[in-house]
């Protein structure tokens, strides 16, 4: 049976179609103002080219920020559970997951079946999230997908607040006016975020098989900082953004099987 997982995130929406634990296709789209439309668009993108239509999908599980607003989903599961399950599909030995999303950051422990055993999320302040990096990219007028590379070119250490995004933003502006290079500012900010992530991770068990998921994990500057702080080399999925949707699809498969029994 074909199943699907759909992850409506705050910035991006992702869909994964699976059959017998095998990934058939996936899509990554921008989240629009209306979650139900975004959901439909995202799943259509994933279906595109597979010869399948939505009616062929036996079970859909939604996750992410907009998970309750997906009209064609039969169930919804939190992104925390989905990230653990998805990471487990890629890397069965992984027990520690750092998920860096647009709105928040999570440290997750899971067992050999990808079931969550413990998790910690940061508070609702935006510091250390994808949204925060977007704001900073905007302030520094650097394209978002270039900030990671640029941060690696830094030549001097700058310490930023590890607490507040608002203050960090004004500080970044002040530094820019003083002539500090963008790469140094970015390196300092990436460092501050990595410290926050490390503090989260320390509150769960840090296992040597460790992965970073979510949109920010595509930022190589960020991954480098985290590697240094944690002292471990994370294993990275080829498409870390779709892990939530992948986990949702695995839940869909499990639920469909339970239903048919």
């Amino acid at each position: 049976m074909f199943v699907a997982g759909i992850d409506i995130g705050s910035r991006g929406s992702k869909a994964v179609i699976m059959e017998d634990s095998r990934m058939v296709s996936f899509s990554i789209c921008e989240t629009g103002p209306e979650s139900s439309k975004t959901a439909r668009f995202t799943i259509d993108e994933a279906l595109n080219g597979t010869g399948l239509s939505l009616e062929d999908i036996g079970y859909v599980v939604a996750t992410g920020y907009g998970r309750i607003l997906v009209p064609f989903a039969k169930a919804n599961v939190s992104e925390i559970s989905c990230h653990a399950r998805g990471a487990n599909w890629y890397f069965p030995s992984v027990r520690t997951i750092l998920d860096m999303g647009g709105q928040d950051c999570k440290a997750i422990n899971c067992d050999e079946n990808g079931r969550v055993t413990n998790f910690i999320m940061n508070d609702k302040c935006a510091g250390g999230t994808g949204r925060f990096l977007e704001v900073i990219a905007d302030v520094l007028q650097v394209p978002l997908d270039e900030i990671g590379d640029l941060s690696l070119k830094s030549t001097q250490d700058i310490t930023f607040s590890t607490v507040c995004a608002v203050f960090a933003k004004s500080e970044a502006l002040a530094l820019l006016r003083k002539g500090v290079s963008r790469s140094d500012i970015l390196a300092g900010l990436h460092d501050a975020i990595a410290v926050r992530c490390l503090n989260l991770l320390k509150r769960v068990v840090i296992n040597k098989d460790f992965t970073v998921t979510g949109g920010i994990s595509k930022n190589i500057g960020m991954v480098e900082k985290i590697k240094n702080k944690v002292g471990l080399e994370p294993v990275l999925a080829p498409d870390p953004q779709i892990i939530g949707a992948l986990g949702a699809a695995l839940f869909a498969q499990e639920k469909a099987q339970a239903q048919s029994k």
Binding site: D123, T159, T162, V195, L198, N199, K202, R203
Partner: peptide
């Protein structure tokens, strides 16, 4: 000093 703040946070002390 950052390491101290970090250790406190890891213990679970709120910011």
């Amino acid at each position: 000093v950052e390491d101290c703040f970090s250790a406190a946070a890891a213990f679970g002390l709120a910011p």
